[in-house]
Design a protein around this nucleic acid. Structure first.
Length: 422
RNA sequence: GGAGAGGUGGCUGAGUGGCUGAAAGCGCUCCCCUGCUAAGGGAGUUUAUGUGGAAACACGUAACGAGGGUUCGAAUCCCUCCCUCUCCGCCA
């Protein structure tokens, strides 16, 4: 959610930004401004009436106290009339306030000046690449290796739950656990606070990070208790501070949190869903920052560098993309995607996206810090995956496979898996 | 899940229909006094939002777990829900 005052002062900037993001409803801006004007007028009208009736109520109290019942009665009669007017206006106000808010929620975040403008992925810029892109033809996709070894069981997953809920077995399960451990250890080293969070969230939290309204279809729902299964740790971790006013000295705050993630992923198919490419349940280590506004872009670079360092230490080739306006989503002001090279599939796989939301999330969930005695200000939030496990697993398996069908243990993981081969 | 007791400002804690956006204490900020330290005195100290103002600020409105209701008037009465504590049940 953007600041209404900012929108009113910079309507054209917001409209341009919407166009750049490929949002077609740029006329929303004017509708919002109009609705806000209506809302303001009505609020004022009601406030004046309420002030009047508050005054009368006080008078009545005073008259009753001295026993002057007749005069009190007269005033009561007068007030009851304006009371019904207030009730009527309040009804209108509710409707208008709701409209205003829903319009406001439909305005996307403004892209940062450094973000390339463009409508589709070909405008994304390759920010950096690292490692050797292995294109040898004998390299197998991970599903061949895993199937042969019996380390990944989709069929029983279907039996027990459904498609997209595989079982990980033996060395693969061990590798995943090692990677999670490694990611958290690395985050701890650079000052992230380790956190374990709820896997179910309530509606207020889903609203806080913007899963509802609109994107509830991505989440699994537990209707009896009105919970949702988290689609990412971003939701509980960011909502951790929802509605708070933080002290300036508390900032910056940074958390690392490993959770499973559940996504309904309706409508996906084909090569995208082979093997570990896309699942309904997967593990992820998430990094979340709460910072002062003037630090958020610097923090975004630190976050990106940290996530890149994970891939480097694992020896996985990757590229970092600076996402263009049209490819970066509603809530972000700047976003990097990290894609790891999958030698067996000969393609890039997204394993992380690191985003700055500026105050967009914070404003929606009223997360502020005290700037000085009088002034509070919205904090800036950022997050990035560090990292999403399934595709890192497949890239690791494919990168470290040998020609005789074995998989070597990456050196960095030998402190968790003390042997040469999986 | 059952029974009981509760949910008030940064904290403790008053407040059962009007003079309470909220006593008192603690904490914190600023000022005064005091040759260190200690002690003392004074002022200030929730949030959101509207109007006016360049601003400082002024004046309103709303909020005492959340949402409804009764009333001219609700922290206070009624209803629903949420949460906390104690006991029981169940359980890792």
């Amino acid at each position: 959610m953007l600041d209404i005052t900012f929108i009113k002062e910079n309507p054209q900037l917001v409209i341009d930004s919407m166009n750049n993001k490929g949002e077609k409803n740029a006329q929303l801006v004017q509708r919002l401004i109009d609705k806000d004007e209506q809302w303001r007028q009505l609020v004022h009208q009601i406030d004046v009436l309420r002030a009047k009736s508050n005054k009368s109520a006080k008078q009545i109290g005073a008259l009753m106290a001295i026993g002057n019942k007749e005069e009190a009665q007269t005033i009561i009669q007068e007030t009851s009339r304006s009371k019904s007017i207030i009730k009527e206006l309040e009804k209108q106000l509710n409707i208008i306030a709701e409209k205003r808010r829903s319009l406001l929620l439909r305005i996307p975040n403004v892209a940062h000046i450094s973000v390339p403008i463009g409508h589709s992925e070909e405008y994304n810029q390759v920010y950096s690449t690292w490692g050797t892109i292995n294109t040898q033809s004998w390299l197998k996709p991970h599903w061949d290796i895993l199937e042969k070894q019996g380390w990944l069981d989709f069929e029983r997953g279907v039996k027990v739950t459904g498609a997209g809920f595989p079982f990980y077995l033996g060395p693969l399960a061990q590798l995943q656990r090692a990677l999670i451990h490694f990611f958290i250890d690395e985050a701890n080293k650079v000052g992230y606070v380790e956190m374990q969070a709820p896997y179910l969230i309530n509606e207020d939290s889903a609203r806080g990070t913007g899963q509802i309204p609109d994107k509830e279809d991505m989440m699994y729902e537990i209707p009896r208790d009105t919970f949702f299964a988290i689609p990412t740790a971003e939701v509980p971790v960011t909502n951790f501070h929802r509605g708070e006013i933080l002290f300036e000295e508390q900032l910056p705050l940074q958390y690392v949190c490993h959770t499973p993630c559940w996504r309904r992923e309706a409508g996906s198919y084909g090569k995208d869903v082979r093997g570990l490419n896309r699942l309904h349940q997967f593990e992820k280590v998430e990094l979340v920052h709460f910072v002062k506004p003037d630090e958020s872009y610097e923090t975004l670079e630190l976050l990106r560098e940290h996530v890149e360092s994970l891939l480097q230490k694992l020896g996985l080739a990757y590229q970092t993309l600076l996402m263009c306006t049209g490819d970066m989503g509603f809530t972000q002001s700047k976003k990097y995607d990290l894609e790891v090279w999958s030698p067996g599939q000969q393609r890039w796989l997204e394993v992380s996206s690191c985003s700055n939301f500026e105050a967009f999330q914070a404003r929606r969930m009223q997360l502020r810090y005290r700037k000085d005695e009088k002034v509070t200000e919205m904090v800036h939030t950022l997050n990035g995956s560090g990292l999403a496990l399934p595709r890192v697993l497949s890239a690791t398996i494919e990168t470290y496979q040998t020609e005789n069908g074995l998989v070597r243990v990456p050196d960095i993981l030998k402190r968790y898996i003390d042997r040469e081969y999986l």
